[in-house]
Design a protein around this nucleic acid. Structure first.
Lengths: 363, 363
DNA sequence: CTGAAAGCGCTAACAC
DNA sequence: GTGTTAGCGCTTTCAG
């Protein structure tokens, strides 16, 4: 067996293609970029030569030469499911606009500062940050150098753009849904100091007001399953016990569901639960969580177009923050309240393993 | 209110720093790269100037000039939770070795070809592909141009490196665990044609053989919750009914759990369940799935070091494939078999809300 | 230890 | 249409 080639063939350059096609380098450049300035015959010849050489343009040289890099930097949390949806949307939007994305992940061992720093070295023209925890002053610093757009975190600043879900409206949708089902004692498990938590608290209060329900009950929660579990125990201890609860996010709601089921509290019979995010968690058939869905596609489309508008020097709109309406996804954790002890089976009561399936939302 | 600055300050270059520090450009380069060739006094002065100007090196120009880019391209699935773990590990490993990562995501609207193509334009020196579905011939094509390493998919090829979990050994761990608990009727729900599925089937068969259990039962499964749900129904219909089952992955196992609980089959009392991946799903407190964990840290460390060895021209090792031993994470879905109808409570039987906890692996 | 010159691969100006 | 010239920001020779 001969040794594998220790020396790889040098990559073909424009000059190689030019030589092979018998034309000048700039002409090849013109052809490769599909811009006017070459005859069809030449185009043909050059493309053939490039093909034969397996030529691939060098984006770094290209970006170095032209002042525009057409690069948008994106900082995202590699562990965060919803960020996956957002990144997908950003790719499509950027692609449609002729921009490239430079991804930089935040991981347990790589903080936002580092993620941003690497993007700066890559000479991105703008930055899109997904749910950043960077202090506002840092964001402002960045915005001083380039357009910065924050997704999914409310930032009060005159220098960065923000695109986010209307958190308050989201919780209001949830409360409306529960109120329509007939619930009057609706609690809220909040997200503490997490991004959006304050808005969701406010939305909850306002919705209760609108429905003339005045016994608001806000329990301290958090972002994780465990936070939800702890809050659920307090929820059950409340007197009078609420018949429904809106929870800060799906993860937390999952923890709530867990405790409820362990305690033998039927969901949605004795307690209706609404989450937030419509994460993959909520969609699991055995969770089937009614939840408030964020419109990732719209959010990302707006984010990209806003950032590009900045790059094109369009004047700043009055409001630097754009809030996107969420929508409610009704699954199986919400139903009309059931004051009695009999546990009616909802479409999917995971732990009501007993017989008697009584389908239909209304008994 | 004055208008915001429509014209952003040009980024500082080496020349700017040089001018400010009163030295030549190359000298600044030497200082910025921390290589020998400058006096301490100069170093001090240059660094100060760079700082004041907010200088950031231009990675593109740097890579263009030096033949090495020190860039490793990574293709990953943005929706795949386990890829998140892998990306985290790759970052640490690459960082420690002085390499950068160029991330390129596969999304519903962006296939692997595109993800790879963008990486090629970025002049990565090597490619690491996470669970790719690219045909082997494509992989070989790529490997012709640069070192290519595939993670988490068995590829029989002499030209690409592979680092993956020992799938067969993983299932064997699961079967060993179940056999030790006293199970003799152990089924397997497989992953069809998914990467690793064949190996896991084989591991299951071999493990059964080793334990002298000859009634192997392999049920067609898949990767999703729904696949698991369907398989679980067949599992329950089997006669004699198995007392334990190993499942292709955690997602599928979740679907299995769901059906079991709905059908009133106690887990782990009447049926023990083992998953594969140790995904976040398995870790959820209300799922608490016993599962086979892949060692993401070791996998990524090996992947990076192998790829760098290639770049450094080290000779290819005999075996281009490296299989990493997984380990078992015992949670609450496995326990000794209970032939009777009484449902004993394991450490966490989400639906066995009854009392009597009988701890200890052996009854 | 420091500076001058050259050039990575490409594109933007100009000539012809 | 096509070729020539210049230079993006940086690193690499090589002189001094």
């Amino acid at each position: 067996m001969t040794q594998e080639p220790p020396t790889r063939p040098r990559r073909a350059t424009l000059a190689d293609v030019a030589a092979r096609a018998g034309v000048s380098v700039p002409l090849v450049s013109i052809v490769m970029r599909d811009v006017p300035g070459a005859s069809d015959a030449t185009r043909e010849r050059v493309k053939k030569a490039a093909d034969e050489l397996g030529y691939r343009p060098d984006s770094r040289a290209r970006m170095l030469r032209s002042s525009r890099t057409q690069l948008i930097g994106v900082v995202f949390g590699v562990q965060h499911p919803f960020h996956g949806d957002l990144v997908s949307g950003l790719y499509s939007a950027a692609d449609a606009a002729g921009y490239e994305l430079a991804l930089s992940a935040v991981t347990p061992g790589r903080n936002e500062e580092r993620a941003v720093a690497s993007l700066l070295q890559d000479r991105c023209e703008a930055l899109i940050l997904l749910g950043p925890t960077l202090p506002t002053t840092e964001l402002a610093n960045l915005a001083d150098r380039m357009p910065v757009l924050v997704v999914a975190r409310p930032v009060r600043s005159r220098v960065v753009d923000v695109v986010r879900t209307d958190d308050a409206a989201g919780i209001q949708l949830a409360v409306d849904h529960l109120a329509e089902l007939g619930h009057s004692r609706i609690a809220h498990i909040d997200g503490g100091r997490a991004p959006g938590a304050a808005e969701r608290r406010r939305g909850y209060r306002e919705a209760l007001d609108r429905h003339g329900l005045d016994d608001a009950l806000i329990l301290p929660g958090g972002l994780t399953e465990d936070d939800g579990a702890a809050a659920a125990r307090r929820l059950l201890a409340a007197s009078p016990r609420p018949t429904a609860v809106t929870v800060f996010n799906d993860r937390c709601a999952t923890g709530v569901l867990d405790v409820l089921r362990r305690e033998g509290v039927s969901v949605p019979g004795e307690m209706s639960v609404v989450g937030f995010d419509d994460s993959s968690l909520a969609r699991l058939s055995h969770v089937a969580l009614t939840t408030v869905a964020q419109d990732a596609e719209r959010i990302t489309a707006l984010a990209v177009s806003r950032v590009i508008a900045r790059l094109d020097g369009h004047p700043a709109p009055d409001e630097r923050e754009q809030v996107i309406a969420p929508h409610l996804v009704v699954r199986s954790t919400t139903a009309p309240p059931r004051p009695g002890l009999r546990r009616p089976a909802g479409p999917h009561p995971a732990c009501d393993a007993g017989p008697l399936p009584l389908p239909g939302p209304l008994g």
